[in-house]
Design a protein around this nucleic acid. Structure first.
Length: 942
DNA sequence: GCAAGGTC
């Protein structure tokens, strides 16, 4: 019987390569898969004693992606902090649209296979992909036998060993990867949404452009490293120091003062004068006190890893790390170099490196060097092939980067040529011998106590350096013969005391940044360059002349604000700490769910802290950026209302635009201050235009509502001391109040979502117990009853005019159910423990006013106001002769027979609803009505 | 509109 085996590799090139080795010279057929990149190779081989028909195909990296459930994918669809809470939002794993053809190929091929062998890269990401592949294949054939092949190099020996020792995929490794993915997605999304919306009011980049202010667990620390160096430079205090400069006649060597430098001016002067005096007595001569000679080796380079290639590219080739990876990938796809994303800096002994060197012998530039490596060493030529040094890193999946084929006649670009040349020369150098030189160190004395040294160098064996030109140089430094004799005396040309000063460190170069990221474990070899590009694209950092990285105003402000809030999200050890926790999944010290919960709760508390301190963000950014809302404004009413911070009067301003927006109206571009172009001529406010209060002493601009007539009220907000503004809608003649500070910086309120698109905080959202204008529903009263009309929760509220009511929370346009408590008879309301057995509404306590209470009438009622008939009786005893709504809960004594939907009795009487405004006269028109006693009863405005 | 990690 022939065993049918489906084999899956991580990428097309790996499938091709592995199939090519395993077929061992047998015939191999190639056919297309449903994805145009992923072909299928069919061949026969022996597998565990069976004859096997192998089908070899591939995926393209991760097969499944992850995102939030649909409900919360849109910005503003939920409070961002919910994205950090697994009980409130879910993330989903799915095969994205562009990977569907691959998944379909896998399902199709699985149907006719007995075994599935997973040849994914042997790193943690590969293990996760292995599970995703197995999952999709099982959709095609649930009974398929799943095996994992593990190999450390794509060599004949390793691959056949993997076939002979097929194992199981490691679930904990895959769990670690998906845990990291979920943490990154949740944290990135929550903070990015919050930061972007919070900072939207500042003009961070050019107008009309939307600036995303993103957070990522790799991009923030990357930014942090740049800012850290920049701050060191900013805060650097230069210190003067003094140094002796010695020049000796006819000797062009540089002497270094043995004391290096002194920070004390008087000591330096005294030493200098003494030295000159003594030297004069010596006839202005120095004497040679010591001559040392020793051999010095220069080690050949280690085999090349990705991070090293990126550093060299940016440092020596003037190619950015991102571009270098792009180019390396294209060289790899042409078969010119090995896989360019590798951490490995040691060659496996099974590699035939001589063959690889042999491929290069025909090259005009380095060919002769390659052929000398392959010929035996002689007395004239010490150069010989030497197995490369072994570094300490091995990712177990890929060898160090090396050339796999000869250079083509023409390269796609000079970058391609430069990168290929470097990789090849570096490979030949690694297979070569060390460079050797003899160094001469000469010490001279001026006067009796000042010593100086000079160094000379003679390169005796160039070794690998012969091929590394122009990337690495080691040059001879002549040492004049006159200096080589102890006790020789030489005439001083000049001896000077020079004042200098300490210098700040330079800005981080890209190669420094890569090295630091690598050191702190920020990103992987394959992604470091992407993170650097990301902080550039986000305008957090910029590359200045000379190639250094400098933080922009945005970058500075982000890091400074986070540090001021004591949130160390931009520190480099954050990621390393996370990685350490994730690793505990591998050792079973922790379960994935616990790691996730821990990480998310830390993010949650930091998020809440940041949100509470949003003022700090605003302050730090307002020091650097003009608020969008202040750019195109004209004063509408000077000295309109009082500022809570400085007690001065603020101007009411208005955008002069008719199509309503400060944004997109201004024409200035660039960063920072001084770009304000206020238009003073527009004074008439038009409907839909933005309005704001501007406090000049505080340099603060606060949005106020766009619509309605604004008037100052006499009230002062107890939270922030700003003068409250009343807003009157001229159409409905309704009035509400708003505190300008709270509207822009909402106090934390459980029932208020500050990120909601339509949400602007008003007094009716506020539950402050000190404020008589606060009309928000305190926590606990937002869900006191099931709406008799639609079944959704109803809240207990109080209007600005003092009416108490229960209304549906479904929102305007969805359900307008309202029940008013009789104003004259009801004094106080409260929520008691428990809920109604019949309809589920909360048990309420209704306290009746003693003034309105006739003898014999109850003092209070406790129960369900919809279902308990005692409430209606109490009202009647109080002279409130209206009915209360009945809950149409099916099965209750009121429900069931009402027929479809809202089969309420609109006529009043009986158990139906009375006082219904079926004419839809709108708000304000329903009060009183035929009953003439205020607001008891319900209304259904249409 | 959001992350980081694979790969094309």
């Amino acid at each position: 019987m022939v065993l049918r085996v489906l084999n899956v590799a991580e990428k097309p090139s790996a499938a091709k390569e592995i199939a090519n080795v395993l077929k061992a010279g047998q015939q191999c057929e190639t056919r297309p898969g449903l994805s145009r990149f992923n072909q299928i190779y069919d061949f026969d081989m022996n597998l565990a004693g069976n004859r096997a028909r192998m089908s070899f195909t591939s995926v393209l990296g991760h097969l499944k992606g992850t995102d939030f459930e649909d409900r919360v994918r849109k910005w503003g669809s939920c409070d961002p902090v919910d994205l950090l809470d697994r009980s409130r939002t879910k993330v989903e794993w799915f095969v994205p649209e562009d990977k569907q053809p691959i998944a379909e190929t896998l399902r199709r091929e699985s149907r006719r296979a007995d075994w599935l062998v997973l040849w994914l890269d042997c790193d943690s990401e590969g293990e996760k992909i292995a599970f995703d592949v197995a999952d999709v294949c099982k959709q095609g054939k649930p009974s398929i036998v799943v095996r994992r092949a593990r190999f450390s190099a794509m060599t004949h020996g390793d691959l056949f060993r993997a076939v002979a020792q097929l194992g199981e995929p490691n679930e904990r490794v895959a769990q670690m990867v998906s845990t990291r993915q979920e943490i990154d997605l949740r944290a990135g999304s929550a903070y990015t949404r919050f930061l972007t919306i919070q900072l939207e009011k500042f003009s961070l980049v050019g107008d009309d452009e939307r600036q995303i202010v993103s957070y990522g667990p790799c991009q923030f620390p990357t930014l942090g490293l740049v800012v850290d160096r920049w701050l060191k430079i900013q805060n650097f205090v230069r210190r003067p120091f003094w140094v002796f400069d010695l020049f000796v006649k006819d000797c062009k060597v540089q002497f270094d003062w043995a004391r290096k430098h002194l920070f004390d001016e008087y000591t330096s002067m005294a030493l200098y004068e003494l030295c000159i005096e003594e030297a004069e007595q010596d006839g202005m001569m120095v004497s040679v006190t010591r001559v040392d000679k020793r051999m010095k080796n220069r080690w050949r380079p280690l085999p090349l890893s990705t991070v090293e290639l990126q550093k060299v590219a940016s440092r020596s080739l003037r190619i950015s790390s991102h571009r270098a990876m792009e180019v390396a990938e294209s060289l790899y796809n042409k078969g010119l170099i090995s896989y360019p994303r590798t951490e490995t800096d040691r060659f496996d002994k099974s590699y035939n490196l001589r063959d690889l060197v042999g491929k290069q012998v025909g090259h005009l530039d380095w060919g002769p060097f390659a052929s000398r490596l392959l010929s035996p060493p002689s007395e004239e030529d010490a150069l010989a092939f030497t197995w490369p040094r072994s570094g300490s890193n091995d990712d177990g999946a890929h060898p160090p980067i090396h050339p796999t084929d000869v250079a083509p006649a023409r390269f796609e670009s000079t970058d391609h040529q430069k990168i290929y040349e470097y990789i090849t020369k570096r490979f030949l150098a690694a297979c070569s011998i060390e460079a050797r030189a003899s160094e001469t160190r000469v010490e001279v004395r001026a006067g009796t106590s000042e010593f100086f040294t000079a160094r000379g160098l003679i390169i005796e064996e160039k070794g690998y350096l012969e091929v590394m030109y122009p990337f690495e140089k080691w040059t001879d430094k002549d040492m004049p013969v006159a200096l080589l004799h102890v006790n020789a005396k030489l005439l001083i040309d000049s001896l000077m005391l020079r004042q200098s000063q300490t210098q700040p460190p330079p800005l981080l170069q890209e190669s420094d940044l890569i090295a630091l990221m690598d050191h702190h474990g920020i990103g992987t070899d394959a992604t470091i360059a992407e993170h650097i590009k990301k902080v550039l694209d986000r305008s957090y950092v910029e590359k200045v002349r000379g190639g250094g990285f400098s933080p922009t105003q945005i970058g500075q402000a982000l890091v400074i604000a986070h540090e001021q809030c004591q949130l160390h999200l931009a520190r480099p050890d954050m990621r390393a700490k996370q990685e350490r926790q994730l690793k505990q999944i591998l050792t079973s010290e922790m379960e994935p769910a616990d790691v996730l919960t821990n990480a998310l709760s830390e993010y949650q508390s930091k998020f809440r802290h940041l949100r509470q301190n949003r003022d700090v963000l605003d302050t730090v950014f307002s020091e650097r950026f003009q608020a969008v809302t202040a750019r195109t404004w004209a004063t509408l009413i000077p000295q309109f209302s009082r500022c809570g911070a400085c007690s001065q009067l603020m101007d009411l301003k208005c955008s002069h635009s008719s199509n309503g927006g400060g944004r997109g109206q201004a024409t200035s571009r660039g960063h920072g201050r001084g770009r304000r172009r206020a238009q003073a001529h527009a004074s008439v406010r038009q409907e839909g235009a933005d309005r704001a209060l501007d406090c000049i002493p505080c340099n603060k601009t606060l949005k106020v509502p766009r619509n309605g007539n604004l008037e100052r009220s006499q009230h002062e907000c107890p939270i922030c001391r700003y003068q409250v503004i009343s807003v009157t809608n001229s159409t409905s003649n309704s009035t509400h109040t708003v505190c300008p500070m709270c509207m822009n910086n909402p106090p934390p309120e459980p029932g208020f979502n500050p990120e909601g698109k339509t949400s602007e905080f008003r007094c009716f959202n506020c539950t402050n117990s000190q404020c008589r204008l606060a009309r928000g529903t305190p926590a606990g009263l937002s869900d006191v009853a099931k709406c008799p009309k639609c079944g959704r929760p109803c809240a207990l509220r109080e209007t600005s005019s003092g009416s108490r009511l229960v209304s549906c929370t479904a929102g305007r346009g969805n359900c307008d159910f309202v029940y008013f408590f009789p104003r004259n008879s009801v004094e106080r309301l409260g929520r008691a423990n428990g809920s109604c057995e019949r309809c589920g509404s909360a048990v309420l306590e209704v306290f009746f006013s003693s003034a309105a209470r006739p003898p014999g009438a109850p003092q209070c009622f406790k129960g369900c106001i919809w279902c308990d008939s005692r409430y209606e009786s109490a009202l009647r005893a109080l002279g409130e002769d209206r009915d209360v709504p009945r809950h149409p809960n099916p099965g209750s004594r009121f429900g069931g027979r009402r027929g479809r939907g809202q089969g309420y009795n609109l006529r009043g009487g009986g158990h139906g609803f009375s006082g219904v405004d079926i004419e839809g006269r709108g708000r304000g028109g329903v009060r009183g009505g035929q009953h003439g006693r205020g607001q008891s009863g319900i209304r259904f405005p249409r």
